[in-house]
Simulated assay, not measured.
Amino acid sequence: MANKRIVQISDTHLTPAGEVPSFNQQLDPFDKLSQVFADVKKMEVKPDYVVITGDLIHEGTTSDYAELKKNLHKEEQNLGIPIFVLLGNHDRTEPFYEGFLGQQAKSKFYQKVTLKGIDNYFLDTTFGNIEQGYLDQKQLDWLSEHLSKDNKNPALIFMHHPIAGASLKHMRFSVLQNGSELLQVCGQGNVKGIFSGHIHFPTTYLTEGILNSVAESTAYHIDCRNNQQHYVNDAVGYNIITLSEENNIGVENRYLYWGQKIVKEIPIGETGFVDPSIFN
């Protein structure tokens, strides 16, 4: 197997029709996403596929998702590669099913796609419209069955909420709340990496020997270094994932724009995991 390259885009937060950009963005998030696709098109070695890891539209409607489907189809034609999407906490499941998929809505959107000798698992970590992520038992059982049965190919997991790790010690209030359960399931298969977004800054760390990589947003960066006060500025970034012939994996962070102006401040309270009873 030759080297495989996957472009990961995350947290596009595209503005619904008639609304203003979220989080006081000074630049149009549609234009920012166009910058990313233009940059990908310049790559000398074309990537094998693109994955957008959630928060596609900032609380959009059916027509917004239909327009997104049309725009991504154009980008697929321009690049000559498939584009896959999954949902984040600012996405709305029913409008997504109706507008993007043209299907009757289900409670969760997750799937397995084998491409170029890689088993890709696109998970749904949303729980209603709350900020935190959670994987329901049905989805964990589905993943467990596939990973334990199909363990010859390298497996990559894509989801919106990251697992808590060394560099996310003070982000536990916002990330995947049952990451330990996911890691137990991952141990049954040939998982090489877990790729996520949500927190709007890039970071990489190991959990149970598995690479975890979080992508920058294409819409805005959040500076979380101050545990009690976060700062927002416009930014455009994405990741390029490389899986080598030997199944070694690495990630390049690409930055296309970095705004210096602070456009929003977010006060933070408790930073630990939330009460698990809310997921009952």
Rank of each mutant, 00 (worst) to 15 (best):
T12Q: 09
T61Y: 04
T207P: 00
K69Y: 10
D31K: 14
P47R: 09
A66I: 03
E44P: 00
T15R: 12
W258S: 12
H198G: 06
N3R: 13
Q103E: 15
G187A: 08
V50H: 03
G60T: 05
S277D: 14
D39R: 13
I130M: 10
H160V: 01
Q25R: 15
Y255C: 07
K70I: 05
C186S: 10
H73Y: 10
E98R: 08
K69T: 02
K112H: 14
N178G: 12
F23H: 15
N89D: 10
K108A: 03
Q25C: 14
S174E: 12
G99D: 03
G18W: 00
L33M: 14
H198E: 05
L143M: 05
I118M: 04
A17M: 11
Y49N: 03
G250H: 00
T203L: 08
G165L: 11
S63T: 11
Q25N: 11
G102Q: 10
M171C: 13
F195N: 09
S196V: 10
L115W: 06
T207L: 08
R225S: 14
K4S: 13
G272T: 11
Q137H: 11
Y255D: 13
D48C: 02
A2W: 06
N129F: 09
E252C: 08
L86H: 04
H200G: 12
Y121S: 02
G54T: 07
E131L: 12
E94I: 00
S277G: 03
H146K: 14
I194E: 02
T203C: 15
E67T: 14
Q103I: 01
I57M: 03
Y110G: 03
K261V: 14
V51C: 07
H160K: 04
F273H: 13
G60Y: 03
Q177V: 09
Y238P: 14
Q177E: 06
D150S: 09
Y238V: 12
Q137G: 10
A219Y: 00
V50C: 01
F195L: 15
G209I: 04
I266G: 04
N226L: 10
I222E: 04
S63V: 05
A17P: 05
I83A: 12
G54E: 06
K192T: 09
L182Y: 05
F37S: 07
E19Q: 15
P202Y: 06
S10A: 15
K46I: 13
Q25Y: 00
Y220K: 02
N3I: 00
H161R: 05
T61M: 05
F100K: 01
V185N: 01
G193K: 11
T125D: 05
S174K: 10
T242S: 09
N71W: 06
K264D: 12
V191N: 03
P276S: 07
A105M: 10
S277Y: 07
L176Y: 07
P21R: 05
V7C: 12
G193M: 11
F195R: 06
A105P: 15
K41F: 07
Q228V: 09
V236A: 10
Q104C: 05
L206M: 10
T126H: 02
A2V: 09
I130W: 02
D124I: 07
A155E: 09
N247Y: 07
V191S: 00
S107H: 01
Q229I: 03
A235Q: 14
Y257K: 14
G193L: 11
A155S: 15
V185M: 01
